[in-house]
Write a protein that binds this DNA or RNA. Structure first.
Length: 282
DNA sequence: CGTTACCTGAAA
DNA sequence: TTTCAGGTAACG
């Protein structure tokens, strides 16, 4: 569920809490451990217990816990994962599957209804995040970069934006919102997006993500921050899950379809496909 | 490339 | 009962 803004909110909340803390114990629900990680529980404990966290980073939708032995504890929340900071004697959170106890008396509580989330311990974070595309909020994500990314592709522009190897961190909510802001239909072939529309899309991607972070993420169903509280961004979305409701800009009914295998929401009036260029040859 | 599977619900 | 779900990996 969580996309870049949600993961970044958790990272910012947790960083001052976990950095400097040493892991005292690790517990994982036996019915979840094999889905959560390739590591046997003993290897997981051996990698974490006694380690002090020295940094908390994010790459795409991954959280990277740097440890004092130089290794990295990597988590991905996938669809329904939660990472919540609780006192050791607080009651279990909903769908709690694991706990990482810290020496200061708090615990990181891992909850995951669907059990898609992952834990890993690696020597080099590149083993996990090395194949991700650039961060959309970094300098290197320019309009020119996006133009090259889309050029010549027949896949829907939405599918390209969702591909984490091309650009890292956008998910279903923020892609629908960015394409609305850029006034591009999600099923437009990536290579057909005009130069001007690519420029709008570049700005829109960054703005929707920044707004998402400012509003501490979007809580449509499962997402909560590290304190267990929902974000606010869902109150400001323009199209996501607003099918059947009027477009705020033009009043037309927001439509739901399926693009790239994902539920997709757009305004059929504000978001246009490019005019089919009259083909001079053939 | 698109589709299916992973798992467990919530909602229509 | 059926469909849908903030994601990704493994299919064909």
């Amino acid at each position: 569920m969580p996309e870049l803004p949600e993961v970044e909110t958790i990272r910012r909340d947790l960083e001052p809490l976990v950095v400097g803390q040493t892991v005292a114990a690790v517990e994982v629900d036996p019915g979840t451990i094999d889905l959560l990680t390739d590591l046997p529980i003993d290897a997981l404990r051996a990698g974490l217990v006694g380690r002090r966290f020295v940094s908390l980073g994010r790459r795409g939708k991954y959280l990277l816990f740097g440890m004092d032995d130089g290794r990295t504890f990597v988590t991905h929340l996938r669809m329904t994962g939660r990472l919540v900071w609780r006192k050791a004697d607080d009651p279990a959170i909903e769908y709690e599957r694991g706990r990482i106890a810290l020496d200061g008396g708090h615990e990181l509580r891992w909850s995951d209804l669907r059990k898609f989330g992952t834990w890993d311990i690696v020597d080099d974070p590149a083993e996990v995040v090395g194949k991700l595309g650039p961060e959309p909020l970094d300098e290197e994500f320019t309009a020119a970069f996006l133009r090259k990314l889309l050029a010549g592709r027949t896949a829907p522009v939405k599918a390209v934006l969702l591909d984490q190897r091309r650009v890292a961190g956008l998910g279903n909510i923020y892609v629908d919102e960015a394409l609305y802001q850029a006034r591009i239909r999600p099923d437009t072939a990536a290579g057909e997006v005009s130069r001007g529309a690519v420029s709008r899309l570049h700005v829109a991607c960054r703005e929707v993500l920044e707004r998402g972070i400012e509003n501490r993420g979007a809580s449509f169903s499962d997402y909560v921050d590290a304190q267990g509280d929902p974000g606010r961004q869902h109150m400001y979305v323009q199209v996501f899950r607003r099918d059947g409701k009027p477009c705020y800009a033009c009043g037309a009914e927001i439509v739901r379809s399926v693009v790239g295998g994902r539920g997709t929401h757009f305004c059929p009036r504000c978001q246009r496909r490019p005019r089919r260029r009259r083909s001079t040859t053939s």
